[in-house]
Each structure stands twice: as C-alpha cells, then as structure tokens.
Amino acid sequence: HNLTITQGKLFFHYNPKLCLSEIHKMEEVSGTKGRQERNDIALKTNGDQASCENELLKFSYIRTSFDKILLRWEPYWPPDFRDLLGFMLFYKEAPYQNVTEFDGQDACGSNSWTVVDIDPPLRSNDPKSQNHPGWLMRGLKPWTQYAIFVKTLVTFSDERRTYGAKSDIIYVQTDATNPSVPLDPISVSNSSSQIILKWKPPSDPNGNITHYLVFWERQAEDSELFELDYCLKGLKLPSRTWSPPFESEDSQKHNQSEYEDSAGECCSCPKTDSQILKELEESSFRKTFEDYLHNVVFVPRKTSSGTGAEDPRPSRKRRSLGDVGNVTVAVPTVAAFPNTSSTSVPTSPEEHRPFEKVVNKESLVISGLRHFTGYRIELQACNQDTPEERCSVAAYVSARTMPEAKADDIVGPVTHEIFENNVVHLMWQEPKEPNGLIVLYEVSYRRYGDEELHLCVSRKHFALERGCRLRGLSPGNYSVRIRATSLAGNGSWTEPTYFYVTDYLDVPSNIA
C-alpha cells in the first residue's frame, strides 16, 4: 500500500525493539523526510534493546553428524571492536523451508527459537588472519532439518551509529543413524509349514526405512522333555500350542467401542483428552525405555581390526524358502538304536541362519518350516543398504507352526516275539517326523474274553527296548493296539495285532 503524509511529521519514542533503520525507511515511504526535528525521533529510546544489523554474515563451514552440527561463519568486528559482546545463534526444527525470524513471537518477546549466546573469538592483530567464530550444536535429532541463523550482539553506541551483522536463515539436516526397533511384532501360524509375521514401523526411523531383515531359527525343545518319565503317576503330560491366527481386521481397528449394538453396526467412541494424553505418555515412556535398553543392555560386537582377528559373527547367506525346513542338525536320541526319531534339535552355532529381506511392506510369510516346531524370529529395521547396512537392534518374537495331521501315527506293522515265561516283546517304529517329539506310547492289549488293559511306555523305555515287553501273560489269544502321544496330543491307534500265548508248562520236552 502507498502511504503519503502531505502535512505533519513523524514522532517515535520509547520503541526499544524498533531499529532506527526501520524508522528511516518509514520517513522515505511516507514522504516526511526532512520535516522531523532532532528530538522527534529519539536516538536513545528507539532500538536500544534490539540488534540492528546492516551487514550480512556468511557461514564459512558446515559439518553434520547424526546428532551434531558444527558451524563456522566469517569474522565480524565493528569499528570499535570492544562493542562486540558476542553472537546469538538461533535454531529450531523446520520440516519445511518457510521459516521466518519472527515465527511464534508474542507480545512478551518470546519466540519459538532456541538461542545460544556465543563469546567472540580472540581478536588477531592481523586483519587478514582473524579467527572464524563458530559453535557445535549438540543433542539434535537424527535425520531432522533445522533452520539456523546467527547475528551479532553489540553494545549501545553513544554516537548512535547503527552497526551489526546478521546471516540469512539456512537449512541444515542432520545425518541418518540406526533406527529404533520395529514396533509390535506379531507372529502367527496359518499352516503346519508357515508363519505369518506382521509389525509396525519404528517410532524413530532416523532416516528413510529402506528394508527390513527377518531372521528365523528353529528352537530346540526343553531338555526336561527328553529326561522326564511322563508315565509316572502324578506327572502331567506336557503340551505345546501353536500360535493362533490373526483376529479379523475389524476387531483390530483402534479407537473402536468394545460393545456392539445388537441391531447392527455401531460407531466408534472418540477417545477423551485424558485417554489420548495417557497414550502419549505411555508411548514416550516406551521410547525412553527402549533407548535405555539399547544403550545399557546391548553391547556392540567388536569388529575385526587390522591384526587379522576374525569377526566372530557368522556370515549372512541367503537361502531359498524351500530350504528352511531342514535348518537344524538332527541327532538321534540314543545312538545305539537307529530307529528312534531325530527330534532332539541342538543347533550348531556355526550354522548360517536363513533370512529374508523385506522391502516396502511390514509383513512376511515364512514358508518351508517344520510342522509343530518353535521358531525364534528376529526382526531388524534398516535405513541404508549400501555401502553397508545400517540397521536397528533386533526385536524378537516366537511362534510355533501348526501340527501336521497323521504325523504322530505309527507307520509300519507292530511285530512281536514270544519268549519263555510268557513274555512277549512288542516292537514298532517311532514316527519319523512327529509333531514336536514323542513323549510316550500307549499300549492297549486284551486277552479274548477279558477286559482291555493299558500300559504306558516312556520315551526312554522305548529307546532301550525298541518297544516294550509284556510279562506274566496268561495263555490265550491276544490283540494289541499302540498309539503315540506327542507334544500336540495323541496320534491314531494302530491296526490290531494278534498273537497267541501258550502255557509254557505244557511245552513238550526233548528229553527222552
């Protein structure tokens, strides 16, 4: 807008934040220059609390790290170098490059900038070799853009010569660093050979998330399962459950009422301010606690030095998902009996873990797994792929695949051998790939016309006998059925096997 004052003059007093240069501009645009008398524009009460600059400061050096910015700028000295009290560095987070010096300023003089007072450097006698002032900004957020400017702080001049310097606002972004852990990993099994893994992005990506790394490792069953005799009275049979499938998407929606109208769909109840505040506090606490764990609990591995020492970490090797089922080394339970199943799973520490690289999504279907087997899954978020990966501390989750139908069934015939004193040795093959492992066998036998009897055969007993022995049988026709019990439950009964026990007292003698 054009402003013209045809008559009258300007009068400025007691404006401590208004620089004289701005008042002189007002004289020019209003056409009143030359009308004012000496005392109409006070030299001592206008701009006496402001830094009124008329020179431009330029930054000469900028260096960044993930949490620091090192700045240096060209030296500046007023005509009387004693008038320079120091520099004021202003900075704040700036997602967009549209910041002005006066953003967030209120009537009390406060604003949204963080201000650092910096002492002037030592003055050199040689004007050509003056030290460049600077400042190291610490405690910054990774991968965050900051708006920065600097200006001088000078003393009051009796001659009211307006001098000083100020830089333009520059924008500097800190470097990326390792992201925080992925949030809320959930693993479920939808079949006997697959596990579905879902997660949420890290709360602090500290860069642009480029991919996720998912490692999985087959877990050995508890050692007590191999040692305890679950045929003993009072000892509860062990059981394991597989990871249940995901709930429906509708039930997972946030901010939804727990109660549904019987007449149909209901609208979600909005969260109160107290609920939102509580969630923010919980989120802040979780982030602080995660940072504490990362800094205190997890110790970084030592990389190899120039002395030739090897990095103890196993090298990563990509495998196809079809090879995942046989990740671990199978060892027989008892070496003397080769027909026992290889369900003991000690994992070799030198073995390469299978892994998958996930790009542009937060889910993965891990296939080719062994049925009813526990897996430990390790999830890392990465925001750099080359020249070397920059990934987060791992988040861990466990899951067990679903049982395989008929995996616990005894394959092959049940054979028998009759000894003296009416002892019958029953023999059968253990299931080759049971659900988890076989903890015991149930032997059901009966003599024709009598009630059915049951015998429990422990895992250890089966390994020693290759089956079991029935003792003290009365003469007669017998039928026997056997079924295995694994961590997933009972298998199917075998087809009945028949044998006849004679009275050993009636056996004919070869003595003449």
Results as ranks from 00 to 15, higher is better:
S203C: 12
S203G: 09
N206Y: 01
N206T: 02
T210S: 14
T210Y: 02
D222Q: 13
S223P: 14
E224T: 10
E227I: 11
L228I: 12
L232A: 12
L232H: 12
K236D: 05
P238V: 05
S239P: 14
S239F: 15
R240V: 13
S243M: 08
P244L: 13
P244M: 15
F246S: 10
E247L: 10
S248P: 09
E249A: 07
N255G: 05
Y259S: 12
A263Q: 13
G264E: 09
E265A: 14
C266F: 08
C269V: 08
P270R: 10
D273L: 14
Q275G: 04
L277K: 14
L277I: 09
L277F: 05
K278H: 01
L280S: 09
E282M: 05
E282W: 06
E282V: 06
S284V: 06
F285D: 02
F285V: 03
K287F: 03
T288S: 04
E290L: 05
V296A: 13
F298R: 05
S304M: 15
G306W: 13
G308A: 13
A309E: 09
D311G: 13
D311M: 06
R313L: 09
K317V: 13
R318A: 13
R319A: 11
S320W: 06
D323S: 07
V324F: 05
G325K: 13
N326V: 02
V331R: 09
P332G: 08
P332Q: 14
T333N: 07
P338V: 13
N339V: 11
N339P: 10
S342F: 13
T343F: 08
S344P: 09
V345N: 11
P349E: 00
P354F: 10
P354K: 08
F355K: 11
V358A: 14
V359N: 11
V365H: 15
V365Q: 12
S367G: 09
G368K: 07
G368I: 10
L369Y: 00
L369C: 12
T373H: 13
G374K: 14
Y375I: 14
I377G: 08
E378S: 07
L379G: 00
C382I: 01
N383H: 08
Q384F: 12
D385A: 13
E388P: 08
E389I: 13
E389P: 11
R390L: 13
C391Y: 15
E404T: 07
K406P: 08
A407H: 14
G412I: 04
P413G: 13
T415L: 12
H416D: 10
E417F: 12
I418P: 09
V423Y: 07
V423H: 14
H425M: 08
M427L: 09
Q429R: 07
P431R: 01
K432N: 03
K432C: 09
K432I: 13
E433M: 07
E433V: 15
E433R: 13
I438C: 07
V439G: 12
L440G: 02
Y441T: 04
V443R: 05
S444P: 00
Y445C: 03
Y448A: 14
Y448R: 15
G449W: 04
L453G: 05
L455A: 12
L455W: 08
V457Y: 08
V457N: 00
K460N: 13
H461M: 12
H461Y: 07
F462M: 12
F462Y: 08
F462D: 02
E465V: 13
G467A: 04
C468T: 07
R469P: 03
S474V: 12
P475W: 10
P475C: 09
Y478K: 01
S479G: 14
I482P: 01
T485V: 04
L487I: 09
G489D: 03
G491L: 00
W493F: 11
P496C: 14
V501W: 02
T502L: 10
D503H: 04
